[in-house]
């Protein structure tokens, strides 16, 4: 494997839960991210999937230092972000950028496209004031927007165009890693395809590493090189995208894959669907042992005993399930 650009070592993000207003007391801890180890190579697209509440967005925010990390190390090109000073982190933020889900909420409605795209260039002093209009125009062209719309406001654009603006903003500082948190979930299918094409094409052209967070597995399979599946703050399966989604090994991944409706009436009506009982448990009070065992169709007594480690299942894939060889 090529040299990793970003490495996570046993990253944990816990949130305290307090009760009472004057006599504040700690009543519990939400273990949103609970020991994630990952690495991503230069130019690689890593898909991150899981249900709402599994910690995938918190992991993204933790990497970007938007929420404080509780434990572990986040290493970008040899620099540990968890122990840096504020000035160092500010420096690193140039290399790490984010695209959010909702292009209606993530753009400032009172800033023109020009202001939105010029702001990062000014803050990080990467362009002389005279060069900024030219840089903004190039950014707009890069994402397929005509520079003549530079003075328009977000409400004058459609959802797909706004997401292009958000992508241009993320690209403004020529980052090394972009984290895209559900960037196409709010868009219609035909627009979704345009944005996916754009991300894939920009990633290739600029040799960007992309962490692509989504709940739509068919989208993730299409764009990613590798996929990590999260459940309740932990990675349960990690491997090449096609392998993980076409031949899932962990029982949770199997259920997730089987739940995707298939746009083919013949296979859709005959295939076996695994319908999981109940909802994911609360990350404040996760079940003992494997946190998936209460919903797992294959669970045995031993699944309750200890948290299963992420172990190699074949030469490319790691899976956290003690019954791996048996099911």
């Amino acid at each position: 494997m090529p040299e990793p650009i970003l490495e996570l070592r046993d990253v944990k993000t816990h949130f305290p839960v307090t009760h009472g207003f004057i006599h504040r007391r700690l009543v519990g801890t939400v273990r949103a991210v609970d020991g994630v180890t990952l690495s991503i190579a230069r130019g690689e697209v890593l898909g991150l999937v899981g249900e709402s509440g599994c910690g995938k967005s918190t992991l993204a925010r933790t990497i970007l230092q938007l929420v404080p990390v509780t434990g572990g190390a986040i290493i970008l090109e040899g620099r540990n972000l968890t122990s840096g000073t504020a000035a160092e982190i500010q420096e690193v933020r140039r290399d790490l950028q984010m695209v959010f889900q909702d292009p209606y909420a993530s753009l400032n409605p009172r800033m023109t496209v020009f202001d939105t795209l010029a702001e990062p260039l000014r803050v990080h002093r990467v362009a002389a004031p005279a060069d900024i209009p030219g840089r903004v125009a190039r950014l707009m062209e890069l994402v397929g927007l005509a520079p003549r719309y530079m003075r328009k406001y977000p409400h004058e654009f459609s959802g797909g165009q706004r997401q292009r603006i958000a992508i241009a903003r993320a690209l403004a500082l020529e980052p090394k890693v972009i984290i895209a948190d559900e960037p196409v979930s709010a868009l219609d299918v035909s627009i979704q395809a345009q944005i996916l094409n754009l991300l894939a094409q920009l990633g290739r052209r600029m040799n960007l590493s992309l962490i692509f967070i989504a709940h739509d597995l068919s989208v993730v399979k299409h764009i990613s090189d590798r996929v990590a599946v999260m459940y309740l703050g932990k990675i349960v399966e990690l491997g090449p995208a096609v392998e993980v989604i076409e031949r899932p090994l962990h029982p949770y991944t199997r259920a997730l894959v089987s739940a995707i409706p298939n746009a083919n009436p013949d296979t859709e009506r005959t295939r076996q669907r695994i319908v999981l009982p109940g909802d994911p448990p609360s990350p404040m009070n996760p079940p003992a042992g494997c946190s998936f065992h209460p919903r797992c169709p294959f669970a045995l007594e031993k699944c309750r005993a200890a948290v299963p480690p992420l172990l190699p299942a074949d030469h490319q894939r790691t899976v956290a399930c003690v019954r791996l060889g048996e099911i």
Binding site: S190, K221, I260, A263
Partner: peptide, 16 residues
């Protein structure tokens, strides 16, 4: 034709 799951992986997606 715009649905990713019906298209070949990594290929340019069909767009309207």
């Amino acid at each position: 034709r715009s649905i990713p799951s019906l298209q070949q992986k990594g290929a340019e997606l069909y767009t309207i």
